[in-house]
Each structure stands twice: as structure tokens, then as C-alpha cells.
Simulated assay, not measured.
Amino acid sequence: MNKLHTLVAVAGIAAASGMAYWWQNKGSTHATAEAAAPATAAAATPAGAVAVEVARAESRAVQDDASAVGSLRSRQGVMLRPEVAGRIVKLGFADGQPVRKGQLLVQLDDQLQAAELRQAEAQVGIAVANHQRNKDLVAQNFVAQRVLDESAAALEVAQAQAALSRTRLGRMKITAPFDGIVGIRNVSLGDYVKDGADLVGLEDISSVFVDFRLPERFLTRVQPQQRAEVALDALPGKAMQAVIEAVDPQLDANGRSLLVRARLDNPSRLLRPGMFARVRVVFAQRANAVMVPEEALVPQGSKQFLIKVVPGPKGPMSQRIEVAAGARRDGKVEVQGSAIAAGDTVVTAGQARLMRGDPQPLRLIELGKVSGPVAASSPA
């Protein structure tokens, strides 16, 4: 019985030792396979390669422009006010209606002025008769020349008095100085108004002006007859073309801004003074501008650099290039010059180790794609 127990114990120990040996060899084989994988991957990438993110340069149409906000103004606009006090006896317009140049808008009571004019005209008639009579008498040597001179002076005084009375009478009528649309009146029939009181506004909106301000750096670039694009919050989705009419010669000392006025045609009369406007002035347009992501640019002092990916003997290499930045649109910036062309690959992240200027091997990572080789651009 003791021998049986001894044999069972020996067999169990042998089985356990065999299992331990097998398990140890399996783990070593698995570790060797795992260690071989990085070695294979390392062999595919040059030693010391810098991992960077890259993107492609693209070509698109770009406009060199400036944006601003402004307000619409009527082509002509006045607030009608009387020059003399008086009582309103007639209104020749309806609120918000078009009127013609010379149309009677407000008539003040002019009975007193009309009577004064008739009196002055009668005085002129008497003076004319006296002067003519004195002419005849002087011709016949019945009176002296001095009498004729006095009658001529009296005639001039009477005529001046009549002209004064006629002017006073004319001031009792307020007419439209130009074609336009009247606003909402501030007075009613029978009101007594003083001189200078606001009666009604008159606006000519056959075309309108848009006034806006630009920073002073655009002083040499904005010129009359340039085109501007205007968008209005009141008319969403509708872009209109304006023409710059004038540039104020004086800059605002507070904001260092330049006042610009552009003209908009308004045949439908939809545009009204006071509307809020968004203005974009186009200075130049380029059909095939080369654009790269903004993060590709690395500023150093007053200069701008980017890293271009070029082919090397063992794979992609870095090439530092100084560039001039142009217009910026939607997270991209224009690269001016011939150093970068559409389709070239540029580094967008990881440039810090590449700014010394020496070409270095790269391991490229293109965003949105699985890590792998990316075609390098030809050297500039």
C-alpha cells in the first residue's frame, strides 16, 4: 500500500513538472513574436523620424476684401420748416405719399402779406406815372433835372418795397424742393406754428447711400468707383452691389477710421434710410490662390515659415520655407509666391523639432486617415 502511494505521488510530481515546462516555453515563444513586431515596424520607418501631422495645400478663388457695418441714408433728405410764424390753412400732401418738386405741401395764412403786396404794387404804379410825367416835363424844360432824378429814386424804392412784400408772401407757402416721399406730419390743419418748427420730413430714396467706416490701413486701397457688396438684415439672403461715391478726406481721430460712402440703386423703393447694412469692399480677386491650414504657419519674429514635405532617399523629409501670408478664409490662409503649389503636403502639427532648417526624416500622419505613407511633394 505504501508503494502504491509512492508511485502516485511520483507520477503527480512528474506531470506537474511537465506542465510547468510546457507553459514556460509557450510564454517565451509568444514574447518573442511580440518583440519581433516592433522590430519589423521600426525597420519600415527611418531611424530618428519625427512624427508629424500633415495636410494638402489646395487651390481656390480668393477675394482680397474688407468688411464693415454701416447705415443707409437717403440720396436727399430734409425736414421742412417754416421761415416765418403763421397758422396752417392748407395741407397739400398725404402722409407717406410721393410728391413732385414744386408741389405745395403747407400753406400758411397769407392774407396780411397779400394785402401788403397789393399796397406795394399800387405804390409802384403811382411812382411809374410820376416818373413818366417828369420825363415829359423835363423834355419841355418845365421842371429841372433834379425833379426827374428824385422821381426815378422814388420809383426804385417802390419797386423794392413790392419785391419785399412779394418775398414775404412767398414764404407763406412751403413747397417740395425735390421729388421724394413725405413722412408722417407733425402738425395738423389750423395749427399755429413758429418759425423753425418741424412740419414734415421729405426723403428722396430713388437711390440710397450706405455710409460705413474702414480702418485707416485701407486708406490707400479704397477708391471712388470701386465695387462693394451690401447685405441687409431686413432683406436676408439678398446681396446688392454698390459703387463707392466718396471717401472722407479726414479720419476720425478717436477710432482712426475712414468714412466711406457708397451708392445703391433703389428702383423698387424697398431700401429705407436708417437700415443696418453689412458691407464688403473687394480690392482684388485671385482665381487660383494656394491655401493651407492656418496651423501650418509658424511665426518667427516678423517672418512666417512652414514645413513642406519633400521626397528623400529613405522616405519623406522636411523642408523649411519662408512664406508670405495673404487672405484668411475658413481656417485657411493664402500662401503667396511660388514656393508652395496646390497638392503639396505641409506639416500642420509637430513643427517644433523641424524649425532648425536642416532636412529631417518624417513619419507622416494625415488627419482623417489611417497612419501610413503619404506622398511627399517635390522640392521647391
Score class of each variant (00 low, 15 high):
residue 80 L to P: 04
residue 80 L to W: 03
residue 80 L to G: 03
residue 81 R to A: 11
residue 84 V to C: 01
residue 85 A to W: 07
residue 86 G to T: 08
residue 87 R to A: 11
residue 87 R to W: 06
residue 87 R to T: 15
residue 89 V to K: 02
residue 89 V to G: 01
residue 91 L to N: 01
residue 92 G to K: 03
residue 92 G to R: 05
residue 92 G to E: 05
residue 92 G to P: 00
residue 92 G to L: 05
residue 93 F to M: 07
residue 95 D to R: 05
residue 96 G to I: 10
residue 96 G to P: 06
residue 97 Q to L: 04
residue 98 P to M: 02
residue 98 P to Q: 04
residue 99 V to A: 03
residue 99 V to Y: 06
residue 100 R to F: 04
residue 102 G to N: 07
residue 102 G to I: 00
residue 103 Q to S: 07
residue 104 L to P: 00
residue 106 V to I: 15
residue 107 Q to P: 03
residue 108 L to E: 04
residue 109 D to A: 10
residue 109 D to W: 02
residue 110 D to R: 09
residue 112 L to M: 11
residue 112 L to Q: 13
residue 113 Q to H: 12
residue 113 Q to C: 03
residue 113 Q to K: 09
residue 114 A to Q: 11
residue 114 A to C: 07
residue 115 A to F: 09
residue 115 A to D: 11
residue 116 E to D: 15
residue 117 L to C: 04
residue 117 L to F: 10
residue 118 R to F: 04
residue 120 A to K: 02
residue 121 E to I: 10
residue 121 E to Y: 08
residue 122 A to P: 04
residue 122 A to W: 01
residue 123 Q to R: 15
residue 123 Q to F: 09
residue 123 Q to K: 13
residue 124 V to W: 01
residue 125 G to L: 09
residue 125 G to F: 04
residue 125 G to Q: 13
residue 126 I to R: 09
residue 127 A to F: 00
residue 127 A to S: 09
residue 128 V to T: 11
residue 129 A to I: 08
residue 130 N to E: 10
residue 132 Q to W: 02
residue 132 Q to G: 11
residue 132 Q to T: 12
residue 132 Q to K: 12
residue 132 Q to S: 11
residue 134 N to F: 10
residue 135 K to E: 12
residue 137 L to K: 05
residue 138 V to M: 07
residue 138 V to W: 03
residue 139 A to P: 06
residue 140 Q to L: 13
residue 140 Q to P: 06
residue 140 Q to S: 14
residue 141 N to C: 04
residue 142 F to N: 11
residue 143 V to D: 03
residue 146 R to H: 11
residue 146 R to T: 13
residue 147 V to L: 14
residue 147 V to Q: 15
residue 148 L to G: 02
residue 149 D to G: 02
residue 150 E to Q: 14
residue 150 E to T: 09
residue 150 E to F: 00
residue 150 E to A: 14
residue 150 E to K: 08
residue 150 E to M: 06
residue 151 S to A: 14
residue 152 A to G: 07
residue 153 A to L: 09
residue 153 A to R: 07
residue 153 A to Y: 06
residue 154 A to H: 03
residue 154 A to D: 10
residue 154 A to G: 11
residue 155 L to D: 00
residue 157 V to S: 12
residue 157 V to W: 08
residue 158 A to I: 01
residue 161 Q to G: 14
residue 162 A to T: 05
residue 162 A to H: 05
residue 163 A to K: 12
residue 164 L to V: 09
residue 164 L to E: 11
residue 164 L to A: 15
residue 164 L to S: 14
residue 168 R to H: 13
residue 168 R to A: 15
residue 169 L to Q: 11
residue 170 G to C: 07
residue 170 G to Q: 13
residue 171 R to L: 13
residue 171 R to C: 01
residue 171 R to K: 12
residue 172 M to Q: 10
residue 172 M to S: 11
residue 173 K to Y: 00
residue 173 K to P: 00
residue 173 K to W: 01
residue 175 T to L: 10
residue 176 A to E: 06
